[in-house]
Design a protein around this nucleic acid. Structure first.
Lengths: 215, 215
DNA sequence: CGTTGTGAAATGATTCACAGCT
DNA sequence: AGCTGTGAATCATTTCACAACG
């Protein structure tokens, strides 16, 4: 099981959207859903939905559709949100604070296990119940607590150094908020979130009189 | 000029990355750069860089490469960041605050012209020098100040209503931070930023032992 | 030379369309 | 009758490879 072909990159992004939609449906006590219905709310074709899911197994029932609760379970397993992920936040500025306070993370299995900052004025303060630790302790704490994800919310010119430290201390992935491309070896997963890029895409689309959704 | 074929969607995202890199180079007083060099720092092939740029015109010089300052100008024009964009932020919670405080926006031509919130405890307070206005004034203020971009940083269940109001008041595009797909007509551009999706992508890639960058 | 711009080829992703199951 | 899973066809994007240029 978990048929391991090559997964199209866009598929993974859509799996998150399916999961979110299914969780909304589950809250409304919806039991079953077809690929057609699931696709409609997300602006996708039914074939797209089925193909995406079929990369990972046969989760549906011909003539019936998909069992909402089952599919939620499968997607969580596929995406890895059925486990708990210990994460460290580096940088307790505005972006960092926003991330910590983003309620949804805990429910997805992401727990912020440590927060670091370089600024002595910030170290020692509490953010959402966590004491901010000095950046000098990063290596030791990340290794000791077996933190597997680092969230880099420091200025661009410090980001690469922070990433290197996180990786040396054993993280397997980095969520990067700094506007730079991090150079890392291929064993480490990187996902970047960049507000500037998003706004520029929006400006471009507006200038075009453009159409359609885009993440 | 501004050859208007169909632009591949991934191209637009990369234009932002080129621009960012070029701006860094300009700060270091770099005058010229080849597609090969520009691609290398971003993990792209030289052909990719040239093709992306060639969709919009002929900006390079055979045998020489691209003039950094010229290309910056062209990219800003293409992306629409050579104009000023009046934006409104709706929702002065953690995400909203992080956005307002994100220094880079102003430099890109995005000025936050109004901030709205529904919570009477927040209305009237100042955030980064702007007084928070009551949500009830959204329609009037957006129309009057000719705000063209709305940034939706409210909870998921309020996002669609806010988007509808913004559009009715005349915005041409929305940057959506709420974890829902906004239903809007095709004249309005939407770009979504979703932390949950980004983290799930990261968890998936880690579970795979995966490789490569992804925004 | 080194480097661009660009058709042509190759690869990747989506949509079609239908057999087969419930 | 309704719907899934999937090969085949279509469409989109990237890479190749090279003529033309400074």
């Amino acid at each position: 099981m978990t048929t391991r072909d090559r997964i199209p990159r866009p598929t993974v992004k859509r799996l998150s959207l399916y999961l979110r939609q299914l969780e909304t449906l589950a809250e409304a006590d919806r039991k079953r859903i077809s690929s057609k219905q699931l696709g409609e709310t997300l602006g996708l074709t039914d074939a797209q939905v089925r193909k995406d899911l079929a990369y990972f197994g046969q989760f549906g029932h011909a003539g019936i559709g998909y069992q909402v609760s089952d599919l939620i379970g499968e997607l969580r397993r596929i995406l890895g949100t059925d486990r708990r992920w210990r994460t460290a936040l580096v940088g307790a500025g505005n972006i960092g604070r926003a991330v910590v306070s983003y309620g949804r993370l805990a429910g997805k299995g992401f727990e912020i296990t440590a927060i670091f900052d370089r600024d002595p004025a910030v170290v020692g303060t509490e953010i959402a119940g966590s004491r901010v630790l000095p950046a000098t302790e990063l290596a030791a704490v990340v290794a000791e607590r077996q933190i597997k994800i680092g969230m880099v919310a420091v200025p661009a010119d410090a980001a690469q150094a922070v990433a290197d430290e996180l990786i040396a201390a054993g993280v397997a992935g980095i969520l990067n908020f700094a506007p730079v491309r991090l150079k890392v070896n291929d064993q480490v997963a990187i996902v970047s979130v960049d507000l500037t890029v998003s706004l520029e895409q929006l400006a471009f689309k507006i200038s075009l009189g453009a159409t359609g959704e885009e993440s």
